[in-house]
Design a protein around this nucleic acid. Structure first.
Lengths: 231, 231
DNA sequence: TTTAATGGTGTAATTTCGACACCTTATATT
DNA sequence: AATATAAGGTGTCGAAATTACACCATTAAA
């Protein structure tokens, strides 16, 4: 028996909160819209999901089209489904986040016409955003702030080789509080998943710090599932 | 300028993972489907979201229609959007969970024709479910297992007055491990949000235990945000 | 009165956490 | 060469939290 699904002409979209870390500051990726509604407003990168792609695939595609960025490890964190959240119809949006390394040279170039530009903006001084994107951002920021405590996501924001001071200042930026240097180092090193390299920082006008690497294999071995909470 | 949204005839649905605790066992609510596809299969309670309701409202309505249960505190936990997850078209589903007290007398009576029956089933021995509902259940179970550690959700599953042994066995059932009786009690009582009553358990054929109550006001006062409840 | 079942309790060793300050090293400046 | 500047790097001690561990008390049923 063939049964037709009832449909309601609804639309799904994806919105992305992409975090980066640069110059000791946490930033997110914004676009300048080139389409109604909210033409010329700043917004999170987001667009409509097509029929023939999973939402995870859609998230990757959409982010690429709006910013030129590819192959991020994106993760869904919440779905926003208020009736009036979009002025032109019923649009439910699935929000994703990703954490990436900002490389100075990484160009941000929208591939489609829907965005005029894409750029990094510090999270501490965000302007008003289109739609309910400020809510989406806040929800996402709270999620990663909590996740920082029990998942090794900090290392996705740092360059492959980093100093302990850089790591600490990232934690301080996300958690928005000062940490004790000696205690922080003691704890991080005690986990055993940081690999000390034979290299040192270059190009600084003071004593260069040792560089470390996050050893994903060791991490996986030590923490079968997750760390923290409950032996 | 009026702009028409592109639409793709997509459908949203809601699926609910409703946890209950009875006879020392964790259970979830299943329905027997009365509609194609998967007619006669067991499934999570779920249905399609209408145009004019938010997804949170839809979750409440759908659960009520399929099980007769109302006014649960439901919470979204994940959205499932694989292209082929529904055999008849593109359906993206937002999954919700809730934790409730199972009262023997609480009748579960579907209000619509879409379900033949609704009943509690132990989580440890789940049959094959319709669609990707087994995945949805697993994702939800992992979520509440983690949340049990930092939010006072256990008390939503227990009767209003409960013994410390009941509380402990609930934790043991969800976390799937034995806990130490003395340490568990010491820790739980140390938080200060359990109110000791002047009453004792009734109808048991052994020494009756003291009854306690969860004091939500005290809880809110003590923990602005969150805490670690066990270990 | 005896049995069966669960209720209820404290201590000591260990581990983790948090507070806290100074010398070292590399570069830049004079 | 000497000095200044800036961050790198390190240890201890007390407090608090966590863990391991065993026996008597109470109630109802047999």
């Amino acid at each position: 028996m063939e049964v037709k699904l009832p449909t309601f002409d609804s639309v799904f979209s994806i919105d992305c909160v992409i975090f980066g870390f640069e110059a000791g500051e946490l930033k997110i990726l914004l676009i300048e819209r080139n389409e109604e509604p909210f033409k010329d407003w700043l917004a999170l990168p987001g667009y409509i999901v097509s029929q023939d792609e999973s939402i995870d695939d859609a998230a990757e595609r959409i982010l690429y089209e709006l910013t030129g960025l590819r192959d991020l490890h994106m993760q869904q964190f919440h779905t926003f489904g208020e009736v009036k959240r979009h002025p032109q119809g019923r649009v439910i949006t699935v929000a994703y986040y990703a954490l990436i390394r900002i490389n100075g040279q990484k160009e941000l170039k929208p591939v489609t016409q829907y965005a005029k530009s894409a750029f990094w903006h510090p999270v501490n001084d965000l302007p008003k955003l289109a739609f309910d994107h400020s809510d989406i951002f806040n929800t996402g920021f709270n999620k990663i702030r909590r996740r920082l405590n029990y998942q090794p996501i900090a290392f996705e924001l740092l360059p492959e080789k980093f100093t302990l001071t850089q790591l600490q200042s990232l934690y301080e930026a996300v958690l928005n509080k000062k940490l004790d240097k000696r205690n922080f180092r003691k704890k991080m090193l005690s986990y055993g998943f940081l690999k000390e390299l034979d290299e040192k920082q270059k190009g600084v006008s003071y004593r260069a710090a040792k560089l470390y690497k996050f050893d994903r294999r060791k991490y996986a071995k030590i923490f079968q599932n997750e760390l923290n909470l409950v032996q």
